[in-house]
Amino acid sequence: MMFAAILLLPRLLSPGAEPKDAVPLAPPRVQYRFNEASATRSPWIDANGWRMIRAPSRTFLYHVTGDAVALAAAEAFTYGSDALIATDASGTDVFNRMLDFLRQIPAADLNPVADIGVLDDASDAAGELMNLLTRQNLLYKLENAPDPSLRVNVRLGSKEYPSEEAGNPSLLAHKIRSQVGDENRSLRIYGSEVVIARFAANGRQARVYLLNYANRPVRGLRVRVRGAYARGEPRVFGVASADLEDWSRDGSATEFTVSELGTYAVIDLFR
């Protein structure tokens, strides 16, 4: 799937309209569950990217208010999905500001970058695995047959990924992560557990999408991408003249720090 050649912008749902075929989505957000035992220390992120990757031709529907409108619009844009947003008057203003921001992002022919292939059997277990891969910034794409160019191909129920392992998706995601190897991952994020990234590239340039699911800004987010890039152009929602700090290239990777990330940023990288 190539995306971003034509930018697909989210739309506001007209009051009273009831789209029949739209897939309803949960409001994107972070839930800090301090008093609950969990498999990790990480906060729980309600993110919808995996649903959009799974059904790229569907239309999605968010019911959101306030600042969550901006995140919902940015999430749909990031995954190139058609989305409708139902909100109130306060949300309309937020939506329009995000729409203005999204319109500034130039179209580009870019392919989503993946390290992992998932053979999706449409099961709940596969969906939950995709959800966790998304939340942990483990880049994947869906496929019908194993892609030898990818480091890891996952088919639940296979000898390597038996169905019983899917019962513990956190453990399974960690196994897949180990198989890829952190040093080989196309994208890494440091400095936040609540930012989900998407990465797309062609031979000349790349684009990093950064979604902050928390309701407060991240001060300093370190991004590492595989590939040698000479410069970057950041666009950060709510920041007039954003800047990338501590740019470095190390072997086959490029790193930089986004000094402040509110809800959303799009970073274009050029060779």
């Binding site: 990790t40 440091y190 557990e193 501590d246 790193e255």
Partner: peptide
């Protein structure tokens, strides 16, 4: 950003 210790203790993503 250029001086650090990298380690995965419990599967955390920020290592």
């Amino acid at each position: 950003p250029n001086t650090y210790v990298e380690v995965d203790f419990f599967g955390e993503d920020d290592t």
